[in-house]
Amino acid sequence: MSQSSTVPIRSLDTQPKKPPAKWRKHIWGYLFLLPAVAIFFTFLWMPIGKGIIFSFYHIDFVKGDTFVGWDNYEKVFKDPEVMVSVKNTLYYMLLGVLIGFWVPILFAIAISEMRRFQGFARIAAYLPYVVPFVVLYGLWRWLYDPVGPINAVITKLGIDPVLFLTDKAWSMISIVIMETWQSFGSALLIYLAAVLSIPRDWYEAAEIDGAGIWQRIRHITLPAIKNQIVLLFLLQLIATSQGFQTQYALLDGGPNNATLTYALLVVRYAFTRQDYGSASALGVLMFLVLGLLAVVQYRMSNKKEA
């Protein structure tokens, strides 16, 4: 073929083969979407679907899977540890709210009132959030040690030393304190931004009308950040309901199952007992409860934007 003839021939050739205009126009659009669709399917929807299927199977990596019907669910409902773990998880969520939830709100309001060093306080509060979890475990094991610094202060105050990690009554509380220490800074930033964006003249007007400091906080500040409070509350519930890594790393669910959360039990079923089917069943049950929470959170955050 001579070089001069290729150009017109090719352009004549391709004209009739054009796909319908609508699709041709969007071919790049779909090409751009294709990798994401493939990856979301393979690594999110497939595991999610498989989880439901696995929950009816006995999974064996060597001999292959066998269908067992509702056996996994029956087994799970008969296991007394499941009830223990549900209770522990609810307790963990409750402690998270009691010990941790109000801390960033309080400090956001306090720091917003500081006339100087506001930035410094903010950074100091956020700093632990940058510390890797594994460091946290090593550090707090030492801080919580029976002869560690916290107990040194406590004994100096004349109180008996506390076995923060090995005492059943304290272990979950200790974990929540540690996690609050680490993570309240990120919530603080969100609250602080909201508090600082409240128009100053609202306070001015309230003051002229004779509102005291508490009344201003109660009737102006808190209502103004109500959306953030609700949203972060739900996000915290969603996060703590799935929590297990700290419990696993620090105490492996002990002492005496006091920190055995539901998610930790799921992991234990799978990787300690090699019972992937029952673990999947536990996951499906968890989804039925938590999915609801996620929907509520979505409705709330959408309402906020409207």
Binding site: F43, I238, V267
Partner: peptide
């Protein structure tokens, strides 16, 4: 198809994800 995955807490499919 993409955004619905946000409603499914990752811990609920951690095991099938591993097996997958």
């Amino acid at each position: 198809f993409f955004l619905l995955t946000l409603f499914i807490p990752p811990t609920t499919y951690i095991i099938p994800n591993f097996v997958n």
